[in-house]
Design a protein around this nucleic acid. Structure first.
Lengths: 241, 241
DNA sequence: CCAGTATGCCTGTCTGAACCTGTATTCTTC
DNA sequence: GAAGAATACAGGTTCAGACAGGCATACTGG
């Protein structure tokens, strides 16, 4: 059996290529949970292939649990892919010890960050800031802290007031028409700063695993900047392709 | 007696000549990564040779890692310009401080590692082990240490004797017809063991950034397992997609 | 208003032809 | 004897078409 993952479409047959295109559309959120796919004949015209080829693609997507199809109706997305690019491209944080975690929202508000705006090449320095910390529910020790910064835009300006949709930031952003598509990622090890150490009730200077990510939309617009500090005794990062 | 030189076009048979023409087209970019080659019968007409000759050319290109072929579909370029999966997909180690580094080869030999074989699901526990350490040429402090394990196979059994080709492990493996295609990767932070600390002349227990990678060929066969320990003051990992 | 029907679009299934690679065999030529 | 040419067959992939039956909507006659 040949393992193939989403990223490489090399030397694959047509059904596989089409399946990968559709999978990308689903996982990226362009096609949302419950959406109806184009009919088989529309896909035939779109990809300029025969219907049997399209049907192979759809059956592959069914096998992967991304869609279901009904006779006389069509195919529907059944993938409610939460964190979109997480599975596909991003390095995934694996919790080593599955301790009961307590998530605290430290703040959700509009901030101004000139340094970050400059680094990202943005004109406006206004961001929506979402900071969350996770600590062990058992003994209260530090697990992780996450700083998320979303460039201010009209579609989401009342996010701090209305709160998150279903507690999920990405669901909220998708609601606003923002779909992650590609990005960049840095991983290193840093000493915990005084403020973060305070929040996590750790000693300042403790070594933490840090991931920084810039997520962009299909158009290349910065959608989110996330800095995660992970307690190395709790986390490993994992990725496959 | 005819003198034969492996690399040049002199005194080469038809399959070799055709392979070289196609290789030029691929390396020059006229045929891009993922492109489909002409079918064997088209190549037969183009070069006015028999199909068996064309097939020899294609199998040579396959051995060199430039193409892959699929039954019923055709042959595809898998050469994306430079180093295949190495730079493209993997998290890349970026040296923060560009200090002069000194690379030492700690060992290059055949070893037996039952634990690793079991983890990778391999029958044979024989590996070729290549351990290399990098230290600063200036003050001798630790930069990184890398443990590479390659499952034993006939094509490379005299690697420890013959040494690496151009000092590069991947060039050597490519030579043997082994081409990286996909894999898996773990990143975490660990305390340095006594032996590694000794090699790097560090204090045991120092926190290092660790990446572990399993690289597989297109067929899913394990090609290499690498554990890298990176001094976090020197390294950050970076990736984009 | 309502039940029955016609129509159009959808998926499910099957077929044969054309083209692809994989493999083996035989013949020719040097 | 070795390299290449010619041929044949097996099996995978894709295409184009045809037919079936499910579903939804609109229309029609009562």
């Amino acid at each position: 059996m040949v393992r193939r993952s989403a990223s490489s479409a090399i030397a694959a047959g047509k059904p596989e290529k089409i399946a990968q295109i559709l999978e990308t559309e689903i996982r990226s959120g362009r096609l949302a949970h419950g959406d109806q796919l184009q009919s088989e004949n529309e896909l035939v015209r779109r990809f300029a292939v025969s219907r049997s080829t399209v049907r192979k693609s759809l059956s592959e997507l069914t096998r992967r649990g991304l869609i279901t199809t009904s006779v006389g109706i069509g195919s529907f997305v059944t993938f409610d892919g939460n964190v979109v690019a997480d599975e596909a491209g991003w390095t995934k944080a694996l919790e080593k010890a599955g301790a009961n975690a307590l998530t605290r929202t430290l703040r959700l508000e509009i901030v101004e960050d000139r340094a970050l705006a400059e680094k990202l090449g943005l004109e406006s320095a206004e961001f929506i800031a979402l900071d969350r910390a996770r600590t062990s529910a058992d003994d209260g020790h530090a697990i992780s802290i996450e700083h998320s910064r979303i460039p201010m835009m009209p579609e989401i300006e009342n996010l701090p007031v209305k709160g998150l949709r279903d507690g999920s930031l990405h669901a909220t952003l998708r609601e606003a028409g923002l779909h992650p598509d590609h990005g960049e990622e840095w991983i290193d090890v840093v000493a915990l700063g005084a403020d973060d150490a305070e929040i996590l009730s750790c000693q300042p200077g403790a070594m933490f695993l840090r991931t920084r990510r810039v997520i962009r939309t299909r158009e290349g617009r910065v959608m989110e900047h996330i800095t995660s500090l992970l307690n190395p005794t709790h986390f490993a990062l994992h990725r496959e392709f």
